[in-house]
Amino acid sequence: MTRPARLAALGAALSLSTLVSGCGFLGIGGEEPGDIQVYSARHYDLEDAFVEFEEETGLSVDFIYGDDTELLERLKAEGDETPADLFVTVDAGNLSNAADQGELAPVDSEALRGAIPEAYRDSQDRWFGLALRARTVAYNPDNVDPAELDTEDTYAGLTDPTWRGRLCMRDSTEAYTQSLIASLIDLHGREATLEIVEGWLANEVEIMSNDILLLEALDAGTCDVALVNHYYYARELEEKPDMNVELFWASQDGAGTHVNISGAGVVRSSDAPAKAQRLLEWLATDGQEAFVGGNHEYPVNPDVAPDDVVAQFGEFEAMPLDAEAYGSLNAEAVDLLAEAGYE
């Protein structure tokens, strides 16, 4: 083939593939949308849960996974035309914020009220917690005697000089860190929380950008104590049963371990609110195992048992969760971390 002919052939092939894929993209000849459309900042095996839901109810679910705050902006920008029926997201502050910005509609459901403890749903019924995660202490048992850990306020106890050079934690850009600090501000006030963070820094806390890295560092012995989400520990433990890391439930003689929720609410301008409510109710009851199981989270529904890996961690007392405070104090938490110089 001559050169121009080859170029022409390449061009023709390109345009053809472009045309075909273009039609697909633009929804020409695309599939019918599902009965319920979900925007979700969560994805762990969410798909399996939705398949199960469809098998049980005959209602099909489409979902888009995205970043929590970005999906909220999308919801706001789409306004009345949004295809979304249900908004699923992580972090109580985020849920409370979506409700405050008027994006979620109240749902009057006896089933939801019966399934979810009051502490984990909105007082105005606009959002409902579905899964629970704890952020607590993990340690390397070779280097740490758990008796050394403060049982009344474990987070504040890590400011003790005995922990100098032995701490590892997540960075300040991480929502887990921010929400923990927001809850501490709620609990102790700003001044005392600032002192706690400064105390961690005085102990030369090593900051890492990933919970798995924290656990690996503990396992390798380069850190003695770290703050991690319980489900990362569960996951690592499942993969590496001989991992030399133990979990410690923080502040059990005090305010309890810091927890946060994933949850959902029906979108204000949903065109299928009844179906969305049905999915929400299912997720809070029969679908709990499917919703939390893949990620080793705790079901919010007290009638549903946590999975086997998590069950062996035992019961723990959770710090009371104030979603509005998480929402309103999060920006202050970011500011506090910056003031303390916590990277």
């Binding site: 909220l72 979506a98 910005q101 850009t173 920006a331």
Partner: peptide
């Protein structure tokens, strides 16, 4: 762990959920 102005955008954005 390098905080640039772009990280600042995300910090303010995600930090305030708005």
């Amino acid at each position: 762990g390098v905080k640039t102005v772009s990280v600042g955008v995300y910090l303010v954005w995600k930090g305030s959920f708005n």
